[in-house]
Write a protein that binds this DNA or RNA. Structure first.
Lengths: 183, 183
DNA sequence: CTGAAGTTTCAGTAATTATTGAAACTTTAG
DNA sequence: CTAAAGTTTCAATAATTACTGAAACTTCAG
């Protein structure tokens, strides 16, 4: 597994971005390598290509599997494990969004729900609770909406994305349509 | 500035989540404190309430200002700087999305554009480029779409969010409407 | 059943990132 | 203009997070 300069550039960059995307550098590199490699590759090949320790690769693969971003493959007459990316690029994006929502929103949402059950002790706490309610509603809105979006078929999602600012127009049409059907 | 247990719980939690949201612990705590505090407060009050160093507060305030999440206020006959949160909760969410897009997508998008200009040297690189194109298109799609969404008025955004899975239905209606107007 | 090949775990260490606090700088009341 | 009050910077240090590599474990061909 030698990487061409082009591939190396991409893999290294993905590593650097990894931490911003919610996983660490080596996990990012590993995933990038799997994305651009056609055939399934073994943990040893990954370790060799990226010059990282075998143990680290094993940990990283476990994490990528838990995110359901990669899949285990077996070759006939070979008991080694081979890996390849799982699903389309769209699936990948969905998984990443989902996982990040779990880490970044769910814990806060749950804490806010608890706090909002308390009775405010004074004016200061009353004001604080009002603000917290706003934050709560925002997070809940985003959470619900994003899970609705994930439920849409890829085609509809694609339509929606391509619509861009046209979304505004469609919303206007919706109002007209509803009015018409009520008449 | 003493914090009640309720407020402290929230502030500390926001600190812990901070790193997942793109800023560090103390910046998260500071922002949380500013969100739930009604009147503008000074840097010293923040340092005292959170038991963090004055220098750290100064850095954090600078960062929050660069995100446009807080605003400087002056009190008459007082040359101290006071701070308070800037804009609605919605504005806050927009700023955070915007800032994260800059950090998390723009650099990758720009790298991918560059790589895609290269001529693939062999079959392996050809396959890699095909994959990179997919990633590029996805990121570009998300980027464009999210900036379109930000351009929508808060009311329309709200409608869109409340629509939830109804989005699918509206898309169907759109098709019908277009058909009808073509007839 | 044995051992060779492969995989996983984890304690120790390295690398990175956040925080402090003291010194330098800025502002303005008097 | 001076000095007191406030603010900012940044080198040193602490805290956190990632990575290595050796040892323990697992699997299966022969």
């Amino acid at each position: 597994m030698k990487m061409t300069p082009m591939i190396e550039t991409f893999v290294m960059h993905f590593g650097e971005m990894g931490s911003r995307w919610g996983f660490n550098r080596t996990v990012g590199q590993m995933y990038a390598l799997l994305v651009i490699t056609k055939d399934p590759i073994s943990a040893n090949q990954i370790a060799e290509a990226l010059s990282i320790s075998r143990g680290n690769v094993s940990m990283g693969l476990k994490e990528l599997q838990s995110w359901q971003l990669i899949q285990l493959q077996h070759k006939p007459a070979d008991r080694k494990d081979y890996f390849q990316t799982n699903g389309s690029i769209w699936d990948m994006a969905n998984r990443v969004f989902e996982e990040r929502r779990k880490r970044e929103m769910d814990p806060t949402l749950s804490l806010l729900r608890d706090i909002l059950l308390d009775t405010p002790a004074n004016e200061q706490e009353q004001h604080a609770q009002d603000k917290l309610k706003e934050v709560h509603d925002l997070l809940e809105g985003i959470t619900k909406w994003s899970s609705e979006l994930q439920r849409l078929s890829p085609e509809k999602l694609d339509t929606l994305m391509k619509l861009g600012s046209g979304v505004g127009k469609v919303l206007d049409m919706k109002d007209k349509l509803l009015k018409r059907s009520n008449e």
